[in-house]
Design a protein around this nucleic acid. Structure first.
Lengths: 239, 239
DNA sequence: GCGGCACTTAAACATATGTTGTATTCGATG
DNA sequence: CATCGAATACAACATATGTTTAAGTGCCGC
C-alpha cells in the first residue's frame, strides 16, 4: 500500500527521494481505532502527532449548550494535530467518525524534522496552510451560503479531496456519515439536513442511497453552489 | 518604536537575539496605505509577504451575490499573507479597513529564512497555527453562537489581542469599524448588528460611543459569551 | 424471524435573522 | 456655519432555520 502521508506531502512539491525514505521510517507504526472515539481532547498536550491512513476523523468543539460543532474533516492522508508539535495545548478536540487507521508520530520526531529537514518542514507547513484554506472556505460557507448551497459545496469538496487519494470515482463516493454528522459539519440541525437533502434529491442534484453519494451531473452541482476548487491547492495530478 | 513583528514572533518562544537582528533587517521598509484598499486579490501571486504594523486589515471573499465576508482580522503585528510564500496563489483577498502601515518582505527572503533559519521558521509556523486557531474559533462562533454572543465573543477576543500589542486599556479600546464592517466579520447584516448592539447596550454589557468600546464588566461580558482565551495561545506576558 | 436501536422522514409551530424603507445623527468639507 | 454623504437608528414585514414531536425504516444481535 502506498503511504498516503508521502502522497499527500509530495503535493507540496519540495520533497526529494531521501525525504520519502525518512517519512517512510517515521510512519511505520499504525493502529486501528473504533468509530466515534476521541483521539485528543481540548486541553490535552498529546505526545504524538497523528495521521489518518484510513477512515474519517474530525476536529470539533462542544458548545456550552451541548451542541457539537465540527470544524474540519480529516480524510486519509490528513494530519490530525500537527498543531501540538508547535502549540503545546489543544484548543479543540479530535474524534473518529468511522473506524480509522492512524499513524502516531512522536512529537520529538516532528521537532527533529523541523530542525534538521527544511524540505520536509516546508511540506508540513504547506499541509498546514492547505488545511487553513479549507477551514476558511467552510467559514465563508457558513457566513455566506444558504443551507442547500453549503451542503452542495461540501459534497463538491469531498469529491475532489477523495479523488485525490483514490477514494472517489469520477461522479460519486461512499458517504458514511449520519445526517446528524453532516449537520454538525454544516452548522445546521439534522432535521434541516434532511429537508435540504430531500430538496437536492428532488432537483436531481444528488442521488444518495445506502450511504453512497452519486452525483448525476458534477458540473451542475458545482454551478449550483458556485464551487471553485482553487482553495484546495491541488497540484494537477500526474497519473 | 518596538518592532511589532519581533514582539509577535517572540511569543512563539523559540527565538534568540541573533534572530531578532535578522528580523529587524528584514522589516525596515514600511509603507503607508489608505483605508479600504485591496492589498492582494484572489488569484494573485504576490511577490511580497506583508505584515501590518499599524491599522487594521482583513481577509475576505465576495460571495456570488455580492456580499463581502470577512474571515479574519489582522491587527498590528499580524502577517497578511504568509501563505503566498508557500502556496503560490491567493485563494482569497486582503484589504485594509483603516489606514495602515505595512512592511513588505520579499518572498525570496521568506524562502531563505525557511531554508536556513529553523528557529525563525518555527516562529513563522507558530504564527500560522495561531491564525488558524482564531479562524477555527470564528467558525465555531458562526456555527454555534447566536448573534449577540458572537458579537460579544469578537469584542472579548479583540480586547486580548489588542492588549497584547499595547492598543487596548484594561477595559476598552478604539473600535474604528462601521456596523457594516462588523456585520461582514460576524456573518450578519448591518441592520442586525445595529439591533444586537442596542440589546447589548441596554444590558449594559458594552458602552460604545464615538468609535470607542468600553466594557463595564469584562468578566460579565466573557461569561455572557462563554469566552475562553486558550485558542489565542498567548503566553503569559512578561512586563 | 424477532426485538430493539439508530437513523431517517415528516409535519406543525416558534424564532432568529434577513429585507426593505425611512428617519435621524454624525463628520468631513467648503 | 452650511451642506452633503455616510453611518446609525428603528419599524414592519418576510423567510430560513430551529424546535418539538412522532411515525416510519433499516440494520444488527439473539
Amino acid at each position: 500500500m502506498i503511504n498516503s502521508l508521502i502522497r499527500k506531502l509530495s503535493a507540496a512539491g519540495s520533497l526529494i527521494e531521501a525525504d520519502h525514505e525518512i517519512l517512510r521510517r517515521v510512519s511505520l507504526r499504525s493502529q486501528q481505532i473504533q468509530a466515534r472515539q476521541d483521539l485528543t481532547c481540548e486541553g490535552d498536550r498529546p505526545e504524538n502527532v497523528r495521521v489518518v491512513l484510513s477512515g474519517y476523523a474530525c476536529r470539533y468543539k462542544v458548545s456550552p449548550r451541548g451542541k457539537r460543532n465540527i470544524a474540519a474533516l480529516m480524510v486519509p492522508g490528513d494530519f490530525c494535530d500537527l498543531h501540538v508539535a508547535i502549540l503545546d495545548e489543544m484548543d479543540h478536540s479530535i474524534a473518529t467518525l468511522t473506524p480509522c487507521t492512524v499513524v502516531e508520530i512522536p512529537r520529538s520526531t516532528i521537532r527533529d524534522l523541523t530542525e534538521n529537514h527544511p524540505r520536509i518542514t516546508h511540506a508540513l507547513w504547506w499541509a498546514t496552510l492547505v488545511d487553513e484554506a479549507v477551514l476558511r472556505e467552510w467559514l465563508f460557507g457558513l457566513a455566506g451560503r444558504e443551507a442547500p448551497e453549503r451542503m452542495a459545496h461540501l459534497f463538491c469538496e469531498l469529491l475532489l479531496r477523495l479523488q485525490a487519494v483514490g477514494l472517489a470515482k469520477h461522479d460519486g463516493y461512499a458517504l458514511p456519515f449520519t445526517q446528524a454528522d453532516l449537520g454538525e459539519m454544516l452548522g445546521m440541525t439534522s432535521i434541516h439536513v434532511n429537508r435540504v437533502l430531500r430538496e437536492m434529491r428532488l432537483a436531481n442534484l444528488i442521488v444518495l442511497t445506502r450511504r453512497y453519494l452519486q452525483i448525476p451531473d458534477v458540473a451542475r452541482l458545482q454551478a449550483f453552489c458556485d464551487f471553485s476548487s482553487n482553495y484546495l491547492h491541488q497540484t494537477p495530478r500526474v497519473k
